[in-house]
């Protein structure tokens, strides 16, 4: 999980439902914030994305669907449109 002005890259971009996912979060430029919403739009976790450091966030994603990712640390011009998503597949 890597943040940059103004994008997220994640590996892998899809996981099976019910799996325990460890997000290893970092940044290639400025500070970003990794925030994950469940398919209903509830914020379920967030962690700092800091250049030069790796932060981990462990979450179990039970429900299949599209999980939206937003930036939670002001990172410049397109901070509010810096989005991505994670697909949780039905097993």
């Amino acid at each position: 999980m890597t943040g940059g002005q103004f994008f997220w890259t994640l590996q892998p971009a899809r996981v099976p439902a019910g799996s325990r996912v460890r997000f290893d979060v970092t940044s290639i430029d400025v500070n970003h914030g990794f925030g994950l919403y469940d398919p209903h739009g509830h914020l379920i976790g967030s962690v700092q994305a800091m250049p030069g450091y790796h932060n981990q966030l462990d979450l179990t994603l039970d429900e299949p669907g599209v999980y939206l990712i937003r930036c939670f640390e002001f990172c410049g011009l397109s901070h509010s449109t810096m989005m991505s998503s994670l697909l949780v597949r039905r097993r």
Partner: peptide, 18 residues
């Protein structure tokens, strides 16, 4: 300049041309 008054480094040096 628009890196917020808390100017969290290194954001001030990544101006995206602004």
């Amino acid at each position: 300049f628009g890196a917020a008054w808390t100017f969290l480094p290194p954001l001030p040096f990544f101006p995206s041309g602004q």
